[in-house]
Design a protein around this nucleic acid. Structure first.
Lengths: 132, 132
DNA sequence: CAACGGTTTGACGTTAACGTAAGCTCGTGA
DNA sequence: TCACGAGCTTACGTTAACGTCAAACCGTTG
């Protein structure tokens, strides 16, 4: 199988996605094995659609945020959740996630602020030793 | 060795820190083995001061942000960096870190926004199927 | 037809970050 | 004195997230 780009806007080979996102085909297959992706098959060959590609983007973003594949899997299920689910259960999970993410954001803000301070101190003239 | 709290405001046993931060003593020793901590010794026993405790807090924050111990180690060295270092090298590293963190912040903001949208959609009345 | 590139499924190897267990030392209280 | 709790080192076990072959199957191209 070669590039599908010219054939069809909506079909991707595994190597297409791997190249586009700078990951290995092995990683993509691994994500499928873990249930994070479920591409269609043509014979034995995986065929990815826009939806799969979108999920992959979410997976990679989750990884950049330091989440485990297990966490990301839970996260994806929030996106998947259609009206067939119990609404309040979904909302609870979303709230839970949001709380965790907002804590992470606080950590991040603190860290960024500290680094900026370090940067300022580095370029500023040496302060005299404080008393104490 | 037992609690040092009453003995001295500035001395902590490994179990004190473990308990305070809800981690194992094994983890703390591991961080030392990786060079992230370097407590003093009294005989063979580790003795932690405020400075070590402060570093441990940074380590745990780094972990919450999804960083590897290797990353955190680099990060800590920015805090350590005294004037003996080349200022521009330090600033470069700080800038590098900041760029990465700000990207992470963007990812985080996006994710938070999406989850909030999911939450709204979940509680909102079901939208009609779109054409297309 | 045969080589080649892309794909598949195993299956074993690897690194990080500890968990866990064994065996030893040391200070203390009944 | 001796059992106990806390600490230490050494070392093997474990899980996650892939990396890295190996062996086999297409579909095309020279």
């Amino acid at each position: 199988m070669t590039r599908q780009q010219t054939d069809n806007q909506d079909l991707f080979a595994i190597a297409d996605l791997a190249k586009e996102f700078g990951i290995s085909t092995r990683a993509i297959r691994f994500y499928e094995a873990k249930g994070l992706l479920s591409p269609e098959r043509v014979g034995a060959t995986r065929v990815f659609r826009r939806r799969d590609r979108a999920r992959l983007i979410l997976i990679l973003r989750g990884k950049r945020l330091g989440f485990s594949l297990r966490d990301i899997s839970d996260y994806l299920s929030l996106y998947d959740a259609d009206r067939s689910q119990q609404v309040h259960l979904l909302v609870d999970k979303v709230e839970e996630r949001l709380a965790s993410l907002e804590r992470q954001r606080d950590d991040l803000e603190t860290t960024i602020a500290e680094l900026k301070e370090i940067r300022e101190l580095a370029v500023a003239p040496r302060p005299r030793q404080r008393a104490g």
